[in-house]
Nucleic acid binder design. Structure first.
Lengths: 215, 215
DNA sequence: TGCGAACCGTACCGTACGGTACTGACGGAG
DNA sequence: CTCCGTCAGTACCGTACGGTACGGTTCGCA
């Protein structure tokens, strides 16, 4: 067990060989296509041209595989930090609209929806470990980007709020409303994506009405 | 098949005998306690003291049983319509806060959470029939109450909006934000319920800032 | 060339589920 | 009393899954 060399370069420093990355990729594809029901160890092994025994050696058990899938996906969609230098009212609005649009796009992505469905289906069981992971690696991550943007807006005298978390909550609610839940329940995302741009702008307008400093 | 008498009075005119109501009650309890994994036909039969054969005779198959559970629960939590006679600014605000608090309470209810988890887990499969049912019987229902309230507010000259659906979406988003998803992912609802009242008031204040007519 | 580790493919095992079939008990109708 | 429908309880069947074990193959390495 000690001194094991990774057969090729590890991917993204996650401690994963690229072989294991391929496995997780195929597992995600299966999950997106057929839901949790289609995510069987035999199916993953077949799709990734590996043996079940290797799956258990690499990931321990099925739960370990699910956790690895979430970590893997989270590491892939690293949010690009916006360099928020020298904000004025118009550039702040543009940044907020871009954030809102990105948020809607991420939430409507089929991998995101599939992983959220998976974690939610698992949440009733004890632990809800997957839910915590998704929360930590997803919301926390994108929340930090929004928080930084809001803070920059306040520093520039363009926004007024006491509680940053509350302001972020309002922005999130105005942007997303119940669309995320509706997509999780099966409403066709492609139908909704067309209205995302307009929706993002409206939501940001409302947010600025609430938290923007008049001037 | 014809002329079958229901052995006792049907419950709520749903075409269900009270025996079947007991079965659905037990099924919901199992679902809340143990999640979808615990919702097996054998388990339901044992909990309700009936035979599996009767389950299949009454509900057809497992999907029919799940649908019946949603219908049954939806018929139980009929939303009380508020008689919105003679609104002024203060009573409108009270009504909105009451609505917001009720909304949060409903969404945080364990039966609601369990059914939403069930429908979401099922949504990846074809059809997403349960998702549609939950959408129709849940959101549509409570949305009508909110829509009527908003419309009354506009008629009374207290609110200003063009698109009622958009205004409702903003209210919903401000009230709920991402709390529903977080609870679905397993965050403990009892921890959150304490802040519901304050949260409802804050959200309504923001909503009135956006859509309330000044004066 | 020979050794050993990793690994694929498959077979295998125990279990649990959805759904069906059978038996026996109850209870009402004639 | 007898017939008949309903239902509980249980046994049963086919299937599918998670997890393990084994034979055969490739490949790095000495």
């Amino acid at each position: 067990m000690q001194g094991v060399l990774e057969s090729r370069g590890a991917s993204a420093g996650s401690g994963l060989t690229e072989r294991q990355g391929v496995v997780l990729e195929q597992a995600l594809r299966l999950l997106v296509d057929g839901g949790e029901k289609a995510l069987t160890t035999a199916g993953i092994a077949r799709a990734a041209n590996c043996s079940k025994e290797s799956l258990y050696k690499w990931f321990g058990d099925r739960d370990g595989l699910l956790s690895a899938m979430i970590s893997y996906q989270a590491s892939k969609v690293r949010t690009l930090d916006v360099s928020a230098g020298a904000l004025d009212a118009e550039s702040l609005r543009r940044h907020l609209v871009a954030f809102a649009r990105d948020l809607l796009d991420v939430l409507a992505g089929d991998v995101s929806l599939a992983l959220n469905r998976l974690a939610i289906g698992q949440a009733s069981r004890e632990g809800s470990k997957l839910g915590h992971m998704l929360q930590e690696r997803g919301r926390r991550q994108i929340g930090r980007r929004a928080g930084a943007l809001l803070e920059a807006g306040r520093k520039a005298g363009l926004l007024a709020f006491d509680d940053g978390e509350e302001a972020y909550g309002a922005l999130y609610g105005l942007v997303v409303s119940d669309w995320h839940l509706r997509m999780l329940l099966g409403e066709e995302p492609s139908e909704m994506k067309k209205g995302f741009s307009r929706r993002a702008e409206r939501a940001v307008d409302a947010f600025l009405t609430l938290y923007g400093k008049k001037g």
